[in-house]
Every structure is written in structure tokens, then in C-alpha cells.
Simulated assay, not measured.
Amino acid sequence: MHWLIALLHSLLLLGSLLLPTTLGGQDPDHVMELVSTGALRGETVRVPLLFDNALDISGYSLSVRNVPTDLLVLEVEPGDITIELDPCFVSVDIFPEGLSLGVVYFQAGSGHLPIGEQWEVHRIVYQVDSETPLGPSPITITDDVGNPPHSTVMVTWLTGIVIEPTLIDGSVEIVEGMLRGDTNSDGTIDLADPIFLTLWLFQGGDVVPCIEAADANDDESVDLGDVVTSLNYLFLSSPGALSGVCEATTPTGPLSCVIPDCL
């Protein structure tokens, strides 16, 4: 009998998620947030979906819209808290322009999203198109993707109050690539790189084309420590922050990378 009651409660909750909400205004104590991140053209990138909730949550639904020529949704992964709670119902529908998502926990049991902040409930996996222009590609939480579209709501545990949360949109910043440690931007990491950096730092040598790539130890500054890190990588098999592969630059970081270092 308990399982039947739980099932009925879950179905009622699912119905409330799919019906339009008439709540007025967004609740500042309940937040859905997409975390902005950077990526290279052609790269696969994960965008976390975070929740703040001042009440225990028994279910939620939302849609996320992206620019279909820039980003392709591959899948929606569960966050650590979602794996731990193991919801009884998860619906994910993927479209060229985004996705719709609905989640229900057992309302009659102990399963619910507890009060908390910055819960990583899901990670949206995108494939960045190889022709996507540089700059931010917006991803927005909305209620107009899907057939029928899902209302963007949270539903409280046991009481079933429907909450319209505050929405924080994000973006995938399409950036140039750089090979950390490739100080002279010739596409490889070799002895020429610490020599090039030493000459620039102490002898007024040629300007480093990509400052972030010269930050070999990834401490957000360029100094003698980066020369040492490069030498350790080359001759002592001590990679430190050097991976030897192309990585995304940091568009809002303290270091600049005017010239792309790799594709």
C-alpha cells in the first residue's frame, strides 16, 4: 500500500510540474543557475546546473535553450546529489534548440532535495560546433522548449507548493586555444620555450605572443618559476601544470592571449 501511495503522490507531483504556473514573481530564496564556462571550437563541454533552495524540494522541471548552430546537446548527466538521492522519475527530452527536464522524488518517502545552496543537480553536455564564432554563446533557462514545454518550477516536499525560482542564465564562451608552456607559440614545448621566456623576462627579448601559455605553472603570473617548471617538464619528467595538449584560454583572467597558440 505504501508504494501505491508513493506512486500516486509522484503522479500528482508530475502533473503539477507539467501544468503552467500562475505564480507572480521569482522567489529569491530558490534559484536555478547555469554556470558559464569556456570551451574551444569542436570541444565537448559540461555546463553545471546548480540549485539553491530554502525549502525541501520534491520535484522540479525546466527547459534550457541554446543556439543550435553553436551548441548541440549530447546528454544530461546527473550531478552528485542527484546520483545520491536517486529520483524515482527523470525525463529528459533533447531538441536542436535545447532540452526539457523533469525530475520527481518519492514524495511519500524520505527522498527529496534537502535545503541547501549550490547543489549541482545536473551537468549538461554540449558539443561545440567547429565553426562557432568566438565569444559567448548564450544558454538560458526558459519554459518554451519542448512539446509540450515544461514550466520552470520547483515543488516543495509533502506540501506540494509550486515555486517559481529566480533564474540565472549562463553561456559557453568560445575562446582561442593555447598550449601551456609553449612560450614562443610554435606549437611545441621544447628547450626554445624557457630560453624565449628568459630573454623576454630579463633581456628585453621579443614579446611573448600568448602570455597565458607562458604561465607554465598556472599561478596567474609569469616569472622565473615558469622557466623552472618548463625545464622540469622537459628534463625531469615533472609535468606540473603542463599537459602537453591544447586547452581553452581564460577570456576574463588576468593574463591575455591575443594570438591563438593552438586550434
Results as ranks from 00 to 15, higher is better:
56 D>S: 13
39 A>R: 03
163 I>N: 01
180 R>D: 05
2 H>W: 15
236 L>M: 08
142 T>M: 02
69 T>N: 13
152 T>S: 08
202 F>N: 10
134 L>R: 14
240 G>Y: 05
160 G>Y: 06
142 T>R: 07
60 Y>E: 12
69 T>S: 13
27 D>R: 01
82 T>F: 06
239 P>F: 00
141 I>H: 03
150 H>D: 14
203 Q>L: 11
16 S>A: 14
228 V>A: 04
131 E>L: 11
171 S>Q: 09
223 D>Y: 09
3 W>I: 12
256 S>W: 11
181 G>N: 01
84 E>F: 12
84 E>K: 13
96 P>E: 12
218 D>A: 08
191 L>W: 11
24 G>H: 11
49 L>K: 03
85 L>Y: 07
28 P>H: 07
97 E>L: 01
148 P>N: 14
228 V>P: 00
69 T>P: 01
55 L>P: 02
24 G>L: 09
148 P>E: 15
169 D>E: 12
241 A>R: 07
169 D>M: 04
64 V>P: 02
80 D>H: 10
152 T>Y: 02
180 R>P: 00
56 D>Q: 14
27 D>I: 00
198 T>K: 12
244 G>L: 08
43 E>R: 04
155 V>F: 09
121 V>K: 10
166 T>L: 07
16 S>I: 06
46 R>F: 02
156 T>M: 11
79 G>E: 12
40 L>Y: 06
44 T>D: 14
255 L>R: 03
114 P>S: 14
200 W>N: 03
38 G>H: 08
239 P>A: 02
209 P>N: 05
178 M>W: 00
58 S>G: 15
44 T>P: 02
247 E>L: 02
238 S>P: 01
119 W>Q: 12
112 H>P: 07
